[in-house]
Amino acid sequence: MPEMIINGLAVNFRSGETVLQAALAGGIHIPALCHHPGLGHFGSCRLCLVEILAGGRPGLAASCSLPASEDLVVETGTERVVRARRVVLGLLLARCPDAKPLLELAENLGAVKFTPRPGDPGCILCGRCVRACRAVGANVIGFAWRGRDRRVAVPFDQPPADCLGCRACEQVCPVNVIKVVEDRGRIRIFPWQSEIEMAYCRNCGAAIGPGVQAGRLQKRFPVEGPLSGLCPACRRRFQAALAGGLVIQPT
C-alpha cells in the first residue's frame, strides 16, 4: 500500500482516499464537521485543515477533500493550523453560540471569541443535509442566497411536497438543528415543515416508515401476497414460517 507522512508518521492509504480518511485509518484524529463518509467531498467548514509541508502546494488545505498521495507530507497541529482552526471555530460559534457540538469542540481545541450574532437558527451551513437529501432523499433541500445571508432552504420556503420523510437530513446534521416530531400517524420535519403520513405493519401495527417511501419501495421491489405490508420483523417471522410449510392467514 502507498504511504504518506502525517505528523511525521508513515500512514498507509488506498488509492482514491483523502488525507482525512488516511489519518483516521491510521489512528490520527482530525476534527471535521461538514465531512460525512457517505457524502463525498464538499470542503465547506474548513475545520479539518492541515498544513502541507511537502508534496503539494505549501500552505493550509482541507484534509477532507485533499487526495492522499505518495510524496505528501502534512502536519495536523502546526501553529498555523491551530490558529486557523480556532478562528474558524470562533466564527461558527459566533453564528451558533448554543450549539453543543461546537462548544465541545471549542473546549478541546480552543476558539477565538467573536461577538455573537443572534438570529441564526443554529445552522452552521455545512450542507450535509443538502447533500444527503440529494444522495438518498428527494433533493428538496438546497442553499439560498449568498454570503452571510446564505441559508439552507426548501423551494419557495414552502413545505416540500416531494419530501419522502426519510430523515436522512436529521441523521447527518452535526449540530442537531433538524428535528422530527411524530404525532398521530404522521411525522413532521423541522425546519422544512414537511408532513408525512407513516405506514404501519398490518400485522403488529408498528410503524414501518414514511408512507411515500414504503409506496415507492413497493413499486420498485414489489412484494405480493402474504408478505406484503409487513414490518421487517413480522416479515422475517412470516418468511421463516412459510419456509416451514405453514400457510398463514394474516390476523
Binding site: 465547506s44 474558524v88 461558527l92 451551513l125 449568498r146 454570503g147 452571510r148 446564505r150
Partner: peptide, 12 residues
C-alpha cells in the same frame, strides 16, 4: 460577493 460556502470567507 462571497458565495457563502466556506466558513472563513462567509463569516470572516
Amino acid at each position: 460577493e462571497s458565495c457563502g460556502k466556506c466558513t472563513p470567507c462567509r463569516e470572516g
